[in-house]
Design a protein around this nucleic acid. Structure first.
Lengths: 113, 113
DNA sequence: CTGTATCCATGATGATACTG
DNA sequence: CAGTATCATCATGGATACAG
């Protein structure tokens, strides 16, 4: 599938959607922390240095809304919540890979006089 | 070239770099407006609805810094400035295309119950 | 433990007047 | 025409206390 038939406005809208989902200071770091086995709120906070509870809570909600993370609750006492990356999260790989590639080259480009 | 040998921290850094260059409310719209033949400050402003001169000025500077736009001045009176997309700007195509593709699919995904 | 509520600092954006 | 300066507003993030 390619996107040649889309209007420019539609393209911009889709790109902004994608930007919105992955941008911000923390989202990628959180996804990586979770994918590496940190499933609890505190574990994630420990592994994403200097994030506050308020912000972490908000980011987790957005990631869950976008179906990139799942949230499972056992209503025992004390409450037990488990976060995990969803299979859908993997669909971001082409986007992220192309951004890594471009950003990596861009450093050199900007360093040139 | 692939990026499998990079550390996670490096990957995040590169992705954040890329995000920084293309994110924000206006950058993509401005690049498109310029690429479609709007080379003058006023033309760009007319074609990117509701952007203020202050913000347009700032965004143009950042795009120029990142070598995505060129700026050429003829010091006549009245002053004549021409903006144009650089060849380097085209290197963003894979990133933008993958984001269009993902964002397009994501709309459907989120709409699902 | 897993968050929410509150308050505050900072930065981004907007409106508009003005300069060379 | 191509911006800059100034002031107001708003969104975002951080620190911390505390609730269930």
């Amino acid at each position: 599938m390619n996107n040649t038939e889309l209007t420019i406005k539609a393209k911009i809208k889709y790109v902004q959607d994608t930007l919105f989902v992955i941008s911000g200071k923390w989202k990628l770091s959180i996804m990586i922390a979770v994918s590496q086995g940190n499933h609890r709120f505190r574990d994630i906070q420990r592994n994403v240095p200097s994030i506050s509870t308020r912000v972490l809570s908000k980011e987790l909600k957005e990631l869950e809304l976008n179906k990139l993370l799942s949230r499972k609750v056992d209503e025992w006492q004390p409450k037990l919540v488990e976060y995990a990356v969803t299979p859908y999260c993997k669909s971001l790989a082409p986007v992220v890979e192309s951004m890594i590639e471009w950003g990596r080259n861009h450093r050199k480009k900007i360093a040139e006089k």
